[in-house]
């Protein structure tokens, strides 16, 4: 049954940064005063903006960053399970990005180079606190872990690109990213 309440309710939006630098989130904030207009139509669920720890049922999920550790996999799967529309935001989410540059090397070699053999290492020790999520063998694009509905390219995507994605979604239309807006850098 479609009621006035359900048609006019605010859409729920969740965001997270996995193996990313939060640059995409900063670019999201670059929407500046346009965020005020957006907030008339959406409310945040789990996001660094709210500090809610788990993603509830949402309309749109924005994923920044690739998947580099076990916790990233858990969070990404939770987002996929809870979000009707899941968007890979930025170069790292789409193809692994800069963090994936470790993929050309063996993980153990990377850890030893950084924590044991590296320049200016004073207390050689590979971090092993049980609270630290275990690293994956490689950094993966989010699309290799869960199905993704839309891809928003850029490092980071511009505020305009976020608007171009979100505005059609708010009215239930399919977003079209113009070729002239397409950027991977």
């Amino acid at each position: 049954m479609t009621t006035e309440h359900t048609t006019k309710r605010k859409l729920k939006l969740a965001t997270t940064s996995l193996a990313g630098c939060f640059g995409c989130h900063m670019s999201f904030l670059d929407m500046d005063e346009r965020l005020a207009g957006l907030l008339k139509h959406i409310e945040f669920d789990r996001s660094p903006f709210t500090d809610i720890k788990h993603c509830g049922p949402c309309d749109i999920g924005l994923i920044e960053g690739g998947v580099c550790n076990a916790e990233n996999v858990y969070v990404l799967r939770e987002f996929r399970a809870q979000c009707r529309i899941l968007v890979a935001v930025g170069a790292c989410a789409i193809n692994g990005g800069v963090p994936a540059m470790r993929n050309y090397f063996d993980l153990q070699d990377c850890l030893e180079e950084v924590y044991l053999r590296g320049t200016n290492v004073t207390h050689p020790h590979i971090p092993d606190d049980p609270e630290l999520p275990l690293l994956l063998d490689k950094v993966y694009p989010v699309g290799e872990i869960v199905p993704i509905d839309y891809f928003l390219s850029g490092c980071p995507p511009s505020a305009e690109a976020f608007l171009q994605l979100l505005q059609p979604l708010l009215v239930g239309e399919k977003p079209q990213i113009a070729k002239s807006r397409l950027h991977y850098d």
């Binding site: 890979a88 170069a91 789409i94 193809n95 692994g96 990005g97 800069v98 994936a100 540059m101 993929n103 993966y140 694009p141 699309g143 290799e144 993704i148 839309y150 891809f151 390219s153 490092c155 990213i177 070729k179 397409l182 950027h183 991977y184 850098d185």
Partner: peptide, 30 residues
């Protein structure tokens, strides 16, 4: 092809071809 870390970004024909063809993701496993 990690465009953000590549000196050639913006001058790269592979990247420009992907823009021309409207490539939003890599589709295939890396």
């Amino acid at each position: 092809h990690i465009c953000p870390s590549c000196e050639k970004t913006g001058n790269c024909k592979l990247q420009a071809m992907a823009y021309h063809l409207g490539m939003l993701d890599d589709h295939f496993p890396q």
